[in-house]
Design a binder for these strands. Structure first.
Lengths: 128, 128
DNA sequence: TGGTTATTTAACCTTTAGGTAAAATATGCA
DNA sequence: TGCATATTTTACCTAAAGGTTAAATAACCA
């Protein structure tokens, strides 16, 4: 059994799983609903497995409602990951090549306001 | 071959590799120097392998200096990972349980100043 | 040339990850 | 009860991850 941070990063290291998380940002969804975008490339049990990984990592919570298992996003583990990244913030800002400036503007002035997600191309979580 | 984000997260999903990155924040180091803290638990070729993973992920650059291969940190891929996490920022701030408040204070007022790393327990990257 | 230090490669092993197909469960409804 | 829908479990496969030991390279130095 690995430590929590490793489990979190490991859960994030798969495009299908990231896409599932991204979908869940828009709200609760059943397994079938979550699976739908992938059924061309993967079977349902495949998606179930990914969901289990996310669940074990604490990133997704599965409820029960009749025969459905409504899944919800749980960002708690992401906070630890973000905190880990914080340590590298100075280095990231120091190397202002591609994304540096972008991140600086995005994260500093508009921080505390809970602003609505500027909705980038972020449904594009697969095949980036 | 996986996509870049997956490769980055996957590289971060190991405590030894995170510890190596953490060490490199303090500056360049040779393979032997990097390996030293782990030699009780792992052999040198083991560390070499981890370094190769980090190198392939673009997080570490290996130079050549006589028989040494000085390794340096490269945060470029971390920026993409951080950008991915940005999308979850609103959710993280909305759920202000454990780390929420901490992150809010850390990332918003002191953002653009390039402040020196507050040096937490962060050498403790292994066994957290 | 030969020895010493630094690092990598090769060959191997075991465990885990990501998939599948087919069968089993769970739940609502006629 | 029995069918329909939603989801999971089982058993299996292949490939990759993370290690190891032993041998090979690289580069300096006497």
């Amino acid at each position: 059994m690995q430590d929590t941070l490793s489990q979190t990063f490991s859960a994030l290291a798969d495009p299908t799983r990231r896409a599932i998380l991204s979908r869940l940002r828009r709200g609760e969804a059943s397994v079938t609903q979550l699976a739908e975008p992938f059924l061309g490339q993967m079977t349902l049990p495949g998606v179930t497995k990914h969901l289990k990984v996310l669940e074990k990592a604490g990133l997704v919570t599965k409820g029960r409602e009749a025969q459905w298992r409504p899944c919800t996003l749980n960002v708690e583990p992401l906070k630890d990951a973000a905190a880990w990244m914080e340590e590298y913030r100075a280095h990231m800002e120091a190397s202002l090549d591609r994304l540096g400036e972008y991140l600086k503007t995005v994260t500093s002035p508009s921080a505390p306001e809970l602003s609505p997600p500027t909705n980038n191309e972020s449904t594009n979580d697969r095949n980036p």
